[in-house]
Design a protein around this nucleic acid. Structure first.
Lengths: 209, 209
DNA sequence: CCTGTTAAGTTAACGGCGTTAAGTTAGACC
DNA sequence: GGTCTAACTTAACGCCGTTAACTTAACAGG
């Protein structure tokens, strides 16, 4: 039987290499371009040691993408608490605004992670844990839209297509920013507000703040 | 003096290797993952021969991205003729619809090119020829928006922010589709129409078709 | 305390990659 | 025909991801 000591499990040569690898990788300027050998050297082990903890380079990137989704969720959590519904129409609007800004903030703050999560190979990396990459992250937008309806900002309950539209607009904006499209640059909050305002308009909301 | 024969310039060993390389590369299933050595073998030359025509692998990808933008433009040209303004409100709406569908059609038909042009490294590859990657491709959307105003579909002349919003929404939709987000899947024309309809709503257009 | 057992590391090696250096060949010009 | 040079060739460098085979360190049981 192999029993883990609960007190101090840091046995053997290194002492939780896996976490060290993940942290070092997340700190890299370009995660996707990172080489296993360099990463191993940075952490202070030989390259094949990585394979004790990850099946392949792609599996490592997959794990990093998962970590990215969890980090994105902390940004969303700062936008609003999904457990408490919006109190009134003004807050429902503000929540969507903050959610959009959080999306852009994350992309600005962690461009390498963002590219890993939503870039070319996103479909491949996206969350091995949950099928289709759907994490708790993906609950925020539908929740914000429902609150818009509940507080009377929009008349009709938001459809699947409404959610897809809102997601597309914000996601596209973040992508264009990441691609350094000049028009999309500027303060995240301001650009996000400009787009979210129009999303609200598209969904049938009347006046704005 | 090195003078090119105008009649039959196919001299030397191969005879316009450059074009052959570009064509073979564009036909590859995953352009960005393509290796120079394989590509050279496919075309029937040795790997270093590529360097007679491209400074580096990245320069080749850059050229391919340029070719992609030209190909995207042909899709846009099928949506409407930018030289002839929209005749009436109905056509102005239809033009935006077809433009959105064309965007998605291209992404569906040429996923590898799409990823090369708008993926992770897009900023790097994007059109070395024109700064900021701005090609004729980028004129279609502003033109379609101006026509909406001219024909009375929307009251105010479209602002920069309006254009960015519309672009974001369509671009985000295409990106989500490329990432195989389930909700974004389905017939390109139908999904595009659903999003463009909402863009029109956001810009202040009244009823829809 | 000695003795397996085994997880967590090691070095060595394979094939493939982008790229460079140096040599060869074939068309053009005198 | 001789020369020049663009367009190719082969050989080689250092890096990569990955595998195989070996070593080491912590525990378990007598």
């Amino acid at each position: 039987m192999f029993v883990m000591n609960d007190a101090a499990p840091r046995r053997f040569h290194h002492g939780d290499l896996r976490r060290a690898l993940i942290e070092a990788a997340l700190a890299a300027p370009d995660i996707e371009a990172l080489s296993l050998r360099q990463l191993a050297t940075t952490v202070g082990v030989s390259a094949p040691a990585v394979y004790r903890h990850f099946e392949s380079r792609e599996a490592l990137l997959n794990t990093l993408a998962d970590a990215g989704f969890r980090r994105l969720e902390t940004y969303f959590a700062k936008a609003f608490d999904p457990a408490r519904p919006a109190a009134d129409a003004a807050e429902a609007r503000a929540r969507l605004m903050r959610l959009g800004a959080a999306y852009l903030d994350f992309a600005d703050a962690e461009p390498a992670l963002w590219r890993l999560m939503f870039g070319v190979n996103a479909a491949g990396y996206r969350s091995a844990a949950v099928p289709d990459g759907r994490t708790a992250t993906y609950n925020y937008l539908p929740l914000a839209l429902r609150d818009l309806h509940r507080t009377g900002v929009i008349a009709a309950p938001p459809s699947e297509r409404d959610a897809l539209f809102a997601w597309s607009a914000i996601h596209g904006l973040a992508t264009l920013r990441a691609g350094a499209v000049t028009a999309a640059c500027g303060p995240a909050e301001e650009v996000a507000a400009s787009v979210v305002k129009r999303i609200l308009g598209a969904l049938g909301a009347a006046a704005w703040t």
